[in-house]
Simulated scan of single mutants.
Amino acid sequence: MGQLIDVNAPLEQEGTRAVVRNWLKKLGESVNSGDPLVELETDKVTQEVAAPADGVLAEILMENGDSATPGAILGRIEGAEPRPRQAAVSATASTETSSGTEDERHFSPAVRHAAQTYGLDPTTIAGTGRDGRVTRADMDRAFAAKSARRTPEPALPDGAGTTTPSRRVAHSDMRTAIAAHMQQSMATAPHVTAVFEADFSAVMRHRNEHKARFAAEGVNLTYTAYVVSASVAAMRAVPEVNSRWHDDALEIFEDVNIGIGTALGEKGLIVPVVHRAQHLSLSEIAGKLQDLTARARANALEPADVKGGTFTISNHGVSGSLLAAPVIINQPQSAILGVGKLEKRVVVREVDGVDTIQIRPMAYVSLTIDHRSLDAHQTNSWLTHFVQALESWSG
């Protein structure tokens, strides 16, 4: 028998929780060093774990849906003198109970947890995993189907009340991870939000004048690019916002690495990062945003694309929201910018000493801070410089 080599989850992972999503090789299948072996998914990115050596996939220790902590053993490869596929399959089969039914202790932890939560017997469910094993996804589907088949209870007599029909939709791994991250942030940081209003007239003029030239170069000039650039300008004036709280000190970052909340439809959202934005022109920022957004929605981001953020922008206005508060801080950062819907509003502007009523493209912008790191004067100063950068945009 050859040497068994562990296949480990990465020691560094981006996100709050990694889940085994899909094995790309079967038990007994030959693999080469560096071959994609298994996919792990966090709330931020899906990444492949490569085979650490040549050999045969001899053991799968974590099934689809199982949580994988950093360094956890996902499976094992048999190196020298690989055993044939049939032997591996037979060895796996021999771990099942002698009666031919899978004993409870051979179900993965995720399946056992689902069985307890849903009140389902996994031995009654057809498995879609390797060699017919029941996966967490199988349990979720079975519970959803059971819930859909339930008939509503009859109304109580004499109008005493009614039972509302409902159905339960199992959370995706990404949604569960996002929920945990949001809850942890609210429990960790005292959130305070300040709201300003920004006039986008200057930005709109500049964009209308230059978007055709950018498009000819293959770059989509979005309003978000201006928001990122204005954030960099505000960071130069109030660098404490670009920071992280520690019990003994405030860590202020030299690089402005700005994460952009990107919606993935029903799946949730992800935050790809524009690294070292302080060194980028408007054109370079727009190009990076275009690339990151496209790859995020194609599930093609690399782990490095979501690492190292020091500040985050939530452009919630793209879905119609005028104001969201508080926008929850992306821990362990100290602040997050919220940008509401850009719309025409009636405003009062002084012209030659006379108040006039004008129609301007306006948006509410908010900065939610970790009050351990920042106070009101820093928050308001940052927003003042941010709004000034937008309203005085000249290229």
Rank of each mutant, 00 (worst) to 15 (best):
G2N: 07
L4Q: 12
L4G: 10
I5D: 06
D6I: 00
P10H: 00
Q13I: 13
Q13K: 13
E14G: 04
E14P: 04
G15R: 00
A18C: 14
N22A: 14
W23H: 10
W23E: 13
L24F: 11
K25Q: 06
G34K: 10
E39P: 14
E41N: 05
K44G: 01
V49K: 00
P52C: 03
P52Q: 00
E63C: 02
T69W: 09
T69D: 15
I73Q: 00
I77K: 09
Q86L: 08
T97N: 14
S98E: 11
T101A: 05
E102T: 14
E102A: 12
V111T: 07
A114P: 08
A114R: 12
D121P: 07
T128C: 11
G129V: 02
R130P: 15
R130A: 15
D138A: 04
R141T: 12
A144K: 14
A145W: 01
A148R: 12
L156Q: 14
R168W: 15
I178E: 01
A180D: 03
A187H: 11
A187S: 13
A189L: 13
T193K: 03
V195Y: 07
E197K: 13
F200H: 07
A202Q: 07
R205N: 07
R205P: 00
H210G: 13
K211Y: 08
F214C: 14
G218T: 01
L221T: 03
L221N: 08
A225S: 10
V227N: 08
S229W: 09
A230M: 11
V232Q: 01
V238Q: 04
P239T: 04
V241Y: 02
F253Q: 03
E254M: 07
L264Q: 03
V271F: 05
V271D: 01
P272C: 07
P272A: 05
H275I: 10
H279S: 11
L292V: 01
N299A: 14
E302R: 15
P303K: 09
D305G: 02
D305W: 06
D305T: 11
F311H: 04
S314A: 09
G317D: 05
V318F: 06
S321Y: 12
S321T: 13
L322A: 06
P326E: 04
A335D: 06
V339R: 01
V339N: 08
V347A: 08
R349Q: 13
G353W: 02
Y364M: 00
V365A: 04
T368I: 00
N380W: 14
N380C: 15
H385N: 09
H385P: 02
F386S: 13
V387N: 10
L390T: 02
W393N: 07
